[in-house]
Design a protein around this nucleic acid. Structure first.
Lengths: 213, 213
DNA sequence: GTCTATACTTCGATAGAC
DNA sequence: GTCTATCGAAGTATAGAC
């Protein structure tokens, strides 16, 4: 309660518009394009308001990340009720917007300690929750299968490389990797692995594809 | 032959120093820190020399990427002679410096078309070569095993997520994933999967851990 | 909460002397 | 090949009126 600055609790429309603008810029032009002037211009707001709401650009980044992180953790919780948690998990990690933002934030984290700490804490929570869901879903997995923690790493890594490749136009081997994942999901969720199936039965909490994976 | 600018063929010490400085800055502080002034300062050179050698900052990025890319492709070629090509392949993709630079370049590629085209072309070549080596190494693989192209994607994705996780201090599930890879390598290369083995028999062409994965 | 005005820094890029 | 000098644009951040 030291600095009298409106926090994430304040449901200000301007604050939200600034965060939206920052997210757009980060997606379209990378984290370096997120400057006070450009964010304000895109949000049709005055540049000084960025300082009013966030204090520094670093804090703006943190606020943006937190908003997406919390939304994503909520969506992850919702997955528990899904009929196909494994597939829903895979699709949550495969959203282009979300994954592209994640890459930007990871690059940012490499040289901004505050961002690094925030990402680190978030990913610990995300992976743990992911592991819990996998554990509950794969009740009959053989003893030779990877542990939930290892599966969480596999899902993160494979979904991320596919999305990064897509952004570069790389496609070689992709179809086969997707089939591999689909086959794995089918074996443990016992459902025919057709893409039309996924399209026909939308999962809960998939409305706002935003934030880190 | 239009603009009289020294190319990568010119073995200028200054040019190399500028590229080294750019690589350092990119690693330590991200691509946004790569500015003409800062690069020149770190290389103990005059800022105007950046324009003399590269013309624009974009060209500097491209030259830096190309240098690392070519070095990496050479190292990949050398792997063919390795006693354990599969493990060597894995380790080549797991180098922290190289992978961190790759993440920066991928983030850069998201909004710089010239960088994007360069990365795209490079990765196509890299993955293809990776696939060729895998094909030659895994001569006795079962028909159910993933194709070389898919394996190349798996290796890229898993090595990259482990390195990115390491940078954030995440370790959950890592040991198991490494064991998985090691087990796979052992099964197809027929060697006891001890880490001391890898340390005891260094592979050729691993002198300069630089450039994209 | 929103605005103007401003101080100060750093950026990319160029012209031209040496 | 290397340097100085310089332009205009854009960056962060703050003070203070409304």
């Amino acid at each position: 309660m030291s600095a009298a600055r409106p926090g994430s609790g304040s449901a200000s429309a301007t604050r939200g518009a600034l965060l939206d603008a920052a997210a757009q810029l980060m997606l379209e032009e990378g984290y370096a394009a997120v400057t006070t002037r450009r964010v304000a211009a895109r949000a049709d707001a005055n540049p000084a308001l960025v300082y009013y709401y966030f204090g520094t650009v670093d804090e703006l980044f943190l606020a943006l990340f937190r908003r997406g992180a919390e939304a994503n953790l909520r969506r992850l919780e919702d997955l528990r009720q899904s009929a196909h948690p494994l597939r829903a998990l895979w699709e949550l990690s495969s959203e282009p917007h979300s994954a592209a933002l994640t890459v930007e934030f990871i690059a940012l984290a490499h040289h901004r300690p505050a961002v690094r700490a925030e990402l680190s804490a978030y990913f610990v929570r995300f992976r743990r929750l992911q592991g819990d869901i996998l554990e509950a879903t794969l009740v009959h997995r053989p003893s030779t299968a990877p542990s939930p923690a290892a599966l969480a790493v596999l899902i993160s890594g494979l979904s991320r490389v596919l999305v990064m490749d897509d952004a570069l136009g790389l496609t070689s081997g992709h179809a086969e990797v997707r089939e591999l994942i689909d086959g794995f999901a089918a074996r443990f969720e016992g459902v025919t692995p057709t893409t039309s199936d996924a399209a026909a039965s939308p999962e809960p909490g998939r409305a706002d594809p935003d934030g880190p994976d």
